[in-house]
């Protein structure tokens, strides 16, 4: 059995907070650069330029890419041959809290969703998975809430057509319109259950943006970019940078589809211990 101290987890999470908050993901940057080059609408191009300049300025000045430093979602894959010495959940939350404080991020989390109260740096949302081996993989996704607010779930009939599903996904983007900082990255979870489809949609945002996409993803991206919403919703051909779909087996009675929208400031960072 490999033994990992909880303090090591805390330190790793703190570092991931820094990386994710100050340095825009290289795949997101590449996609934005590509959009900038391809965009023909002058105002949209100007906005994309500002987005790229913002990423460069954040990196240089060690400033948060966006003032909404998100609701940190931590995915942890723990090898079954590892024992953690200490309390794992406490270690992760401590790492998040320390990182947010140390790097002057925003205390955006309220403990009581109904009565609100004073906001804090912690806690985060933790998704744990047991995997083979003796390694621990930590990923942080500080999710901005302007775009989280625009996410939707629909429980389709198992006999629903692909067209109905596509139309729903495109409609979710239209509903978000200019509000959630386009160009978006669209995470889609299809299958599983109501809760699991939501997790799939969020996990889909972690996948690197590349040219390797399924036909469904390509079709959806084309349809979404045809809406003409554009950067900041002021028109243009770049409404989304990518559409990522994750699927999972589901029940004969249903077909859950969850859409999680990310703003252009899609931030995440990973480390394997």
């Amino acid at each position: 059995m490999r033994r990992i101290e909880a303090a090591k987890i805390t330190k790793a999470v703190t570092e991931l907070v820094r990386k994710a908050s100050f340095f825009l993901r290289s795949d997101v940057l590449s996609a934005l650069r590509k959009s900038y080059t391809a965009e023909k609408n002058i105002q949209a191009k100007k906005i994309l330029r500002a987005i790229l300049d913002n990423a460069a300025y954040a990196r240089k000045q060690k400033l948060a890419i966006c003032q909404d430093t998100g609701f940190p979602v931590v995915f942890i894959e723990i090898g079954q041959d590892v024992t953690i010495h200490g309390d794992l959940k406490t270690a992760i939350n401590k790492g998040v809290g320390e990182g947010y404080k140390k790097y002057y991020l925003r205390d955006s989390i309220v403990n009581d969703p109904l009565n609100r109260g004073k906001s804090k740096f912690s806690v985060c949302i933790i998704h744990m998975n047991i995997v083979k081996g003796s390694k621990v993989k930590l990923t942080i996704l500080p999710k901005g809430f302007g775009c989280e607010n625009k996410s939707q779930l629909k429980m389709f009939k198992p006999t629903a057509s692909i067209k109905e599903i596509k139309d729903f996904i495109v409609q979710v983007v239209k509903d978000a319109g200019p509000d959630a900082c386009p160009p978006y990255v669209i995470g889609v979870g299809i299958g599983g259950s109501a809760d699991y489809a939501g997790i799939l949609a969020k996990k889909a945002l972690l996948r690197k943006i590349s040219s390797r996409n399924s036909k469904l993803e390509k079709d959806l991206l084309r349809q979404i970019n045809q809406t003409g919403i554009g950067p900041m919703g002021l028109g243009g051909s770049n409404t989304a940078l990518a559409v990522h779909v994750q699927t999972y087996p589901t029940h004969i009675a249903g077909l859950p589809v969850s859409v999680n929208i990310s703003c252009h400031a899609l931030r995440s960072a990973s480390i394997t211990l």
Binding site: A58, Q61, K62, L63, A64, I65, C66, Q67, D68, T69, K101, Y103, Y104, L105, R106, D107, S108, G146, N149, D179, A180
Partner: peptide
């Protein structure tokens, strides 16, 4: 707008707009 904390030596932290 709700900015981040202000880093040492800076006037303000990150301070973009929120959904109106």
């Amino acid at each position: 707008c709700g900015p981040t904390q202000t880093p040492k030596g800076k006037i303000i932290g990150s301070c973009g707009p929120t959904t109106s």
